[in-house]
Design a protein around this nucleic acid. Sequence first.
DNA 1: CGATATAAGACTAAAAATATCTCATATATC
DNA 2: GATATATGAGATATTTTTAGTCTTATATCG
Lengths: 154, 154
Amino acid sequence: MRLTRAGEYGIRCVQHLARHGKGALVSRKEIAVRTDVPPHFLAKIAQQLARAGIIEIQQGANGGYRLLRDPSEITLLAVIEAIIGGISLNDCVGRPESCHNSPLCTVHRVWNKANRQLRATLQEADFATLAKEDSCCLTPCPETAGHNGSIEKK
Amino acid sequence: MRLTRAGEYGIRCVQHLARHGKGALVSRKEIAVRTDVPPHFLAKIAQQLARAGIIEIQQGANGGYRLLRDPSEITLLAVIEAIIGGISLNDCVGRPESCHNSPLCTVHRVWNKANRQLRATLQEADFATLAKEDSCCLTPCPETAGHNGSIEKK
DNA sequence: CGATATAAGACTAAAAATATCTCATATATC
DNA sequence: GATATATGAGATATTTTTAGTCTTATATCG
Ligand code: SF4
Ligand code: SF4
């Protein structure tokens, strides 16, 4: 009944990328350091995000990751499900056939309802909105600065 | 992000007991067979339910388990949390100190909200209501019969 | 080409879930 | 009270999942 570490890391990764905006290239190393995720682990997670069409991976020297969509178009739900697969609070939610009683089971219906609610809540949260208030970035991020009270640029 | 087997089994156990009503003694073996739970595993789960004050265990010959409260007073949430501990969708929900960023983190707030909703939904579901419509019992249960279309008793 | 950075998947280690076993304890019945 | 029966409680074993690392291959820059 908890998010896996990979899922949490995936969110941090997208959140960090979102601070740089759509299309900006950020190296794996920078993301790993800033979000406190083991670099090799991040690589695996990034692959899943890429397969889901959320980020693009650029190989080679000076490579890195970039967001393919605008932060406002990316929801928490999309990121989580890209990494841990479909959310289902109980086995019988995702695979009703796993319990032959599911067609009759009233508990099953409660789980279905709870699952729908959970997904809805996670879908409401997009990364543009999340970034507005503050961020999940674990250490201050110079590139994105300017939110330290005074606007210095220009 | 899923209910453990133990949690699911605990729910089945309470649901079966609920069909017999508050205070009725049902043997561990019967519950195990009817709900398709390994008997020894059920024993461990029952201990947790007993510690939580949901059931009472009677030892000795012709022993078994009985509900301490009325089914209408027992919620899904209570049973689940008795067995798998407090529900928390992400580590930082249950233990905010596990991530030093939680006071600032907007994602954290989404998790908190989702967690509250989930708990609320599970708390709304009590076993009296759940039993009204149909049941989770995996095999027909003679003692509780009478819902097979015709009323035969008397 | 050579240096750098990621790809992709194999591999390992650790943790958690699931189930079982053993010995102890309580109760009914004789 | 003795015996049979049924559960208590914790230890143990097995399996599955999670978390993290490592190795070899590939892409890009200069
Ligand atoms: S008994 Fe009901 S809640 Fe439990 S697994 Fe089967 S369908 Fe789902
Ligand atoms: S970064 Fe935010 S969501 Fe992630 S663990 Fe920390 S507080 Fe929770």
